[in-house]
Design a protein around this nucleic acid. Structure first.
Lengths: 153, 153
DNA sequence: CAGTATATTCGGGAAATGTCGAATATGTCA
DNA sequence: TGACATATTCGACATTTCCCGAATATACTG
């Protein structure tokens, strides 16, 4: 790629990625763009994206910013130009970190919920669940930390 | 609860849970039901759910089965009756397991994608990402395992 | 400052999703 | 089997989401 439009195999890959992500609520355009960026060896312009992926430029723009929000893509402003280039981010932890936030919030809520629970049964259930979420969240965080360390050694 | 409708604090809890889950694509009815079940100390009927949560019975039915699909709720068939009762599942791992499946599939796709990548840069990027996803998935699995062990000791 | 290149926002239309009440299916008991 | 209780599906409607092309905003160049 990079000088020509995606080949057959590449197109298939892009659609596979999209099929995987879409059921999780990622819009088709963004999902396809992610697969595309994965294959693209350098930052790429919106016009190029729109052409290769056969979507309107406005769609490409919002899709790219959506990926950016999830830290799945990175924006490269070009000096001396309004032009913006996107490439896939090396920070693939973004989604997991976001999930950790959910686990945290849920644990918090459950702890609080345990307080208002009428019966002991529900109270202990919620306490246990809160603990579970905290535990999982912590080991995920630890795993991320290990990974980062491993990468830089 | 259990004999009366949710109190003010309980209602607030239910809505808090819903607010947390809905941005993640969980429909309002299912999200509220989850909060409700968390508070309810015993299996509860669809009629009761519909009444307490002020939603139609059909809505309650589909919401309950949705939670069941995600293993967040458990169905209790009652002997000698068509009646179905739901309670929150003690298997809160369901969502995480599902996520692990996604990580797996993504890693698989990336490994395959590395094969068709034209340039070395994209290839090694995908290989690294695949490894990352595998790593995270494994430590999550390990954490789940530890949790299960800890719970039964 | 005018002109150009580019990204972003806007409004509309199409498609998907969520919810409801009514209709239907299914299981249980006598 | 018939009658009943209950869950599930169906069709309609409202709401939301997505995507497009046109209009607008923004930044850079000369």
């Amino acid at each position: 790629m990079s000088n020509k439009a995606p080949t057959g195999a590449e197109r298939r890959f892009i659609e596979d990625v999209a099929r995987l992500l879409m059921p999780w609520g990622v819009p088709q355009a963004a999902a396809r763009l992610y697969g595309y960026l994965l294959l693209f060896p350098e930052p790429v312009s919106l016009d190029r994206i729109a052409a290769d992926l056969e979507m309107s430029k406005s769609t490409a723009s919002v899709a790219a910013r959506l990926l950016e929000k999830y830290t799945l893509a990175r924006r490269h402003g070009q000096r001396g130009s309004k032009r913006v280039l996107y490439e896939v981010s090396d920070n693939y932890e973004g989604m997991l970190i976001e999930q950790n936030r959910l686990l945290d919030a849920l644990a918090e809520l459950l702890k609080q919920g345990a307080g208002i629970a009428a019966r002991g049964k529900t109270r202990s259930r919620m306490e246990e669940m809160a603990e579970f979420h905290m535990t999982i969240r912590q080991s995920m965080e630890a795993a991320l930390k290990r990974w980062r360390a491993r990468k830089t050694r």
